[in-house]
């Protein structure tokens, strides 16, 4: 069976090689919606042709309008975005969801203050709307007010504790602000919520390693190992992490742990070199010299 990621990639290649029939575009937009990926350029470029297509059912038509609108705003293609927005506004005049798109249009033009005022107005109408609260966080982050973004996001998480995306965003914001302890807490939360997602383990390990200290580094090695395990040894980022963590443990002073002598570091460096030899033979020599036993 072909994986969904592969299907998406095939459709993407077809579009980039000049395919422009509405069937392919429709399938592509569906995959993008389903896998929740950011392909704004392709979506806005080709999606605009699909807006009036007869292929779309009533429900999908408006989903596509919303999708193309966001993608167009992401690429600063304001003409297409305004076109979508007008149609959506005519169809759903009182909808908060359309209101959110209007706010995003303000954001795309750099009118942050106006966008915030607009979101406040929408929140007064429906105070429990999660999407609007998230936009407020995004506005603050986009302007560089990370502290305010953290505040807003904490407020949001007080009422929507099970939102995995929000925890991930908060973790990243804390890392940006060098607040590693708090970030570690967020990533712990994420690991319990989605233990099969290797990126959560990896980020948690990176935070632990960055914090430093014997215990944290030893723990980070465990989480790097979990990430390597989950990726089947295909992720260079996880392997490099494991290798640096084991090297750091070797250099630690103070009481030794029996686990410190594990061969994980050597295995990681071997796998790193193997991956480079397979994917980029020109650089394999340099990497080999770098990760060689120190």
């Amino acid at each position: 069976m072909v994986s969904k990621t592969q299907t998406l990639k095939d459709l993407e290649d077809a579009l980039e090689n000049g395919a422009s029939d509405t069937g392919t575009i429709q399938k592509f937009l569906r995959m993008v919606r389903e896998l929740r990926v950011r392909r704004s350029e392709l979506v806005s470029q080709h999606g605009a042709k699909l807006l009036n297509s007869r292929l779309l059912g009533e429900e999908e038509r408006w989903l596509v309008h919303e999708q193309v609108c966001v993608a167009a705003l992401d690429c600063q293609d304001l003409e297409v975005a305004v076109q979508c927005l007008k149609k959506l506004k005519a169809k759903f005049p009182t909808s908060i969801r359309v209101g959110r798109l209007r706010g995003m249009a303000l954001e795309a033009q750099g009118k942050w203050e106006e966008a915030l005022v607009h979101y406040e107005k929408l929140l007064a109408e429906s105070p429990a709307n999660a999407n609007i609260m998230k936009r407020k966080v995004a506005v603050e982050r986009a302007r560089g007010n990370t502290h305010k973004a953290i505040e807003a996001l904490n407020e949001y998480l007080d009422s929507f504790m099970s939102d995995v995306d929000a925890w991930a965003e908060l973790g990243d914001l804390y890392v940006e602000n060098l607040m590693y302890k708090q970030a570690a807490f967020c990533f712990e939360e994420l690991i319990t919520a989605a233990p099969h997602n290797y990126l959560n383990h990896l980020k948690y390990a990176e935070v632990l390693y960055t914090m430093g200290g014997a215990e944290n580094v030893r723990n980070s090695r465990k989480y790097f190992s979990a990430a390597v395990d989950l990726t089947g040894g295909d992720s260079l980022r996880a392997l490099y992490g494991l290798w640096t963590a084991t090297s750091a443990i070797k250099a630690l002073k103070g009481p030794k742990d029996p686990e410190d002598e594990s061969p994980l570091g050597d295995l990681a460096s071997k796998q790193i070199v193997a991956l480079y030899k397979a994917g980029c033979p020109a650089k394999a020599k340099i990497v080999e010299a770098c990760v060689e036993d120190r």
Binding site: R38, D74, A138, D165, E169
Partner: peptide, 26 residues
């Protein structure tokens, strides 16, 4: 085995609801 390892970190780390429109694309 987790089926997530065919997805790159960028894909796993993309959160559509928090999408920032203030980027170099401008």
């Amino acid at each position: 085995k987790s089926e997530m390892n065919d997805q790159c970190p960028e894909q796993l780390d993309f959160r559509g609801d928090f999408i920032s429109l203030n980027h170099r694309g401008i």
